[in-house]
Amino acid sequence: MWTNFVNCLNMDGYGIFIVPSWLSAFIILSVLFIHTQRQLTKLRRRMARDQ
């Protein structure tokens, strides 16, 4: 079980493919999420100011 995980992270082996693919996915998804939330707060603040 633990060896599975160690094998995944092994940068000399297939880790060099597995780690970036998962990492890029998490980065893209969190950037989208944060972007959405930031836009929401920005727009809410702007509307509160102008109303």
């Binding site: 079980m1 633990w2 599975n4 995944c8 297939y14 493919f17 597995i18 693919s21 998962w22």
Partner: peptide
């Protein structure tokens, strides 16, 4: 990452499939 075994053909790289 932990519980599923590596694929007999593709080895560890099959773990990319779970996001792909």
């Amino acid at each position: 990452f932990f519980l599923s075994p590596p694929d007999y053909l593709q080895g560890e790289t099959v773990r990319i499939m779970y996001i792909h």
